[in-house]
């Protein structure tokens, strides 16, 4: 029984880290049509910034978010203005082109990060990352717990933003009706710019969150990217709640599966589930 509760707890925590990576990606894709393959590389950079904030200035990465979030927001908006708008002007269907474009950006960012910080793997160690505490019969590490807190705050903020603010609702309108949204008086350019900015900002937060659990290096962006794709497709492009639930679902699926089948097959379970879900509901779990 303890093992089951532990598996559920761990699964949810891991799932939250998938979720926080996915929501920004999903938001940007939904609002602008851009599939941002550099999203997780931005997250990695966020992780590095948090790491060095601690190493050089003794500032906890969570505090460093105060600087990281607005900084990344600005970069995101700049990214939209500088690269996405020209792309949209030149291509009819943005999908595949945006993948390649953002892949190019990711490669550049990866190399720059390697040059600046070397390829050596990094581990964040704060006061809480080596501690743990119980939740019922299960035990939780300090790092994963903090990561979960960050993730929940980010997700809640996004949900609130989308429900309560004008821009948030404008984004949802853009997703649902890209052509028609402009006709209803929505400033598409502004909305898209903000959406991309928010995407980058959440990527930075996600990077800090993930650094509380995992060792990271410049190449970490690739496996993170695969899981981001996975949960966004599973949860539904453009959704925040859908992607969050998908993340939790994915984390749970792998964790519970590993209770009954050999570990090497646990990831396969996730892949198969994804394929099945896509067959039954091609637009994802929650997408309408």
């Amino acid at each position: 029984m303890t093992q089951l509760v532990q598996a559920v707890t761990t699964g949810l925590l891991v799932g939250l880290s998938y979720a926080v990576l996915g929501v920004g990606f999903s938001l940007t894709w939904g609002a602008t049509g851009v599939i941002n393959a550099s999203h997780t590389m931005v997250a990695v950079i966020g992780a590095y910034l948090g790491y060095f904030a601690l190493a050089w200035f003794g500032v906890d990465p969570i505090i460093a978010l105060v600087v990281i979030l607005p900084l990344f927001f600005v970069f995101g908006w700049g990214f939209f203005e500088g690269l996405v708008r020209p792309l949209k002007k030149r291509t009819r269907v943005v999908g595949l082109s945006s993948v390649v474009l953002t892949l190019g950006v990711a490669l550049v960012l990866e190399s720059l990060t390697k040059l600046a910080a070397t390829a050596n793997p990094r581990l964040l160690q704060t006061a809480y990352t080596s501690r743990s505490f119980p939740i019922g019969p299960a035990r939780v590490g300090g790092g994963p717990a903090m990561a979960a807190v960050i993730s929940l705050v980010v997700i809640a903020a996004l949900v609130g933003f989308r429900q309560r603010t004008y821009l948030g609702r404008a984004m949802r309108a853009l997703e649902q009706e890209p052509e028609g949204a402009a006709l209803t008086g929505i400033d598409v350019r502004l909305t898209s710019g903000v959406a991309t900015g928010i995407g980058f900002a959440t990527a930075g937060a996600a990077g800090v969150a993930l650094s509380m659990i995992y060792v990271f290096s410049p190449t970490s962006y690739l496996p993170w990217l695969v899981f981001t794709f996975l949960v966004v497709i599973l949860g539904g492009v453009g959704t925040v709640l859908g992607v969050s639930l998908a993340g939790l679902f994915a984390g749970l699926a792998v964790s519970l599966a590993s209770l009954v089948i050999p570990f090497v097959w646990a990831n396969l379970v996730l892949f198969v589930l994804l394929i099945l879900v896509l067959l039954v509901r091609p637009t994802g779990l929650l997408r309408r």
Partner: peptide
């Protein structure tokens, strides 16, 4: 037990 990289979480293995 064998496990693949990247490892998402070690708790299930260690718990076992």
């Amino acid at each position: 037990e064998l496990y693949d990289l990247p490892l998402a979480s070690a708790e299930p293995l260690v718990s076992q």
